[in-house]
Nucleic acid binder design. Structure first.
Lengths: 342, 342
DNA sequence: ACTAAAATTTAGCGCGCGTAAATTTTATTT
DNA sequence: AAATAAAATTTACGCGCGCTAAATTTTAGT
């Protein structure tokens, strides 16, 4: 018996020998019906391959099973990886995740929030652009929809924040670099989001504690093509004469990838060995950092834990049915990944 | 006047002084109502900020304004880039694109097709896993939903295919490599989709025409972590003694990135200059290929044209209201991008 | 066998909108 | 200005399911 025959839940209910309200209950939560009932429904399901009309389902529901996942820039494999992990967990929990990318543009981010409103999601995992975000618009959104912020911690926004602890990870790698060679200068990322400034501040703090002088390579612009910024910045730095140190800590791996390209092009050997004249380190453990030349010493963020905790936090909100009394912040520690570049 | 006041289209219609069905018509196509009517509705829209309930909208519609975009592996920036371009065009045309990634897994791909069915999309842009796809399931899906295949051309599936012309691009780069140095061997990608075999075949053809002997470095496995495969393959090839040529054409850039990492690690200098002992080329012009060490000579696929043409093809299908009589195949030519690696 | 609790069924309203058919308004022509 | 066609609007109905309350059946425990 094919699919197209069954037009609605009523028909399917008759065919499965169960009343429609019970079938409805089953689709809302299979565990809410008796085992024997569940079996009969599932037997009919295999036989007739019916699925409820999601539009009719969600129309009169105060809350859907939808979950929005928003990332600022999907072409960044870091976010692709985060999104993938989150997606999987949502599906496993019986939700419908929908992935959106702002592609670095405020206009798109605003459109996404608009669309999300229409989707009446049970909750949203929101990776904001940061500085380019429309603060008041996002604020309004967060008031209306249970929201967990990820990656970029915009003060006061959302019911919770899950991200990485820059003030742990940066000192960790700064100390490693100082132990094993010259104290690093810091190649900052564009000030797109709070992570940018936090990482720079964490660097300066760590350097001060260790008794060294900070040295920051500043960056203009607000674009997300970090490789290019790292590359061009690298060329500039190298042409203008290297900083007073042979060690460069990049604010993230994508910058480091660009920087490595510049160094390579300029014939400067990068690495922690004797033959090298420059050390370069990154932050994030970007999926491709294992395959840079040389392989990149960096801080690994725990994608799985971040995804786990984010989804947990959101589900907590959803299940409680109320909004968070206190905005919680969960920061994960990064792990030092020692490879060849520093 | 705030937002929350208006509960449905009826209320909004009263407030705007237009009948509900006309308002409904407006939301379906603003151009379908008289100019004066449109102005009154839009004035009310600014004043009251109402938006229709998408679930109620789509419930009784034979066809929604949804468009599904499916890619096999979103963590690959190539697909992220394709998806971004397609998304933009769909939005511009007033559609609701939804992005899905199979993340390399058949089970996920099947789930996505399942979900898509429920979404009743006007059409789908489908980048299939390829060999890992459930052919009969996809076939069924394509019968039910207007579908344009992208990237991976699975024979007979979908109403149209848009992709790159491997039999143009591979000979192009093979000839370039032969002109400028030793004839290349070919580092194949895992046989995940038709592109894998086509590129290898195109290589062999091109070599034969040029009077050279083909030499293929074969690869086992069916995973999407091409960098790792390129890296491990690179180590193997280098350790076992290089092939009879100093030139390696990789089936795609991600493999090349891994290969470059292996070469670097082994202290082998890659490039087209005199000091180098190895040349490496790729295919696709991956967003990061500009920043490899050395920068990667490759074939650029025209992302924008591919996105344009895919969306055009799908809109054609949607507007015509009927399915394609003949399955069309549109192949875009690649352009040679000469950088430092070969 | 009896009882309380849990699950299911019956019955029926309402959601917010699409849409066909009937009617009115507007634009065009004579 | 009247006639006619075309466009816009109104009337009226139905979609598929959520949800609830009351009635009934089934299950589990004494």
């Amino acid at each position: 018996m094919g699919a197209g025959n069954i037009r609605n839940m009523e028909e399917f209910a008759v065919l499965s020998g169960i009343s429609r309200p019970t079938v409805s209950k089953y689709f809302n939560d299979p565990a809410s019906v008796r085992g024997s009932t569940r079996e009969r429904i599932e037997a009919a399901l295999k036989k007739y391959d019916y699925r409820p009309n999601i539009y009719a389902m969600n129309q009169n529901r105060q809350l859907t099973k939808n979950i929005g996942i928003v990332v600022p820039y999907l072409a960044d494999p870091f976010f692709a990886e985060v999104a993938r992990n989150i997606e999987r967990r949502c599906i496993a929990a019986g939700f419908w995740p929908t992935l959106f990318s702002s592609h670095g543009e405020q206009k798109l981010e605003n459109n996404i929030l608009d669309s999300l409103r229409s989707l009446k999601p049970a909750g949203v995992l929101l990776g904001l652009l940061g500085r380019a975000s429309d603060r008041s618009l996002v604020e309004k959104f967060c008031r209306d929809v249970p929201t967990v912020l990820i990656d970029a911690n915009i003060e006061g926004l959302g019911d919770a924040f899950i991200g990485s602890d820059n003030f742990q990870s940066i000192p960790l790698i700064v100390e490693y670099l100082c132990r094993t060679g010259e104290p690093p200068c810091f190649f900052e990322m564009p000030a797109l989001n709070p992570n940018a400034n936090k990482r720079r501040d964490a660097y300066e703090q760590a350097m001060e504690i260790l008794g060294h002088t900070s040295q920051v390579i500043r960056v203009k612009g607000e674009t997300w093509d970090f490789e290019r910024i790292g590359y061009e910045g690298g060329l500039r730095v190298i042409d203008a004469g290297l900083p007073k140190t042979n060690t460069i800590l990049c604010s993230n791996d994508r910058l480091a990838i660009g920087f490595l390209a510049a160094a390579y092009e300029k014939g400067i050997r990068v690495g922690h060995d004797k033959d090298s004249t420059l050390r370069v380190a990154g932050h994030d453990d970007h999926p491709f950092s294992r395959f840079t030349c040389p392989s990149l010493t960096t801080i690994a963020q725990d994608y799985e834990s971040i995804a786990d905790r984010s989804v947990e936090a959101l589900f907590g909100l959803i299940e409680s049915g109320k909004r968070a009394d206190v905005r919680s912040e969960t920061l994960f520690e990064g792990k030092l990944v020692m490879r060849s570049s520093a």
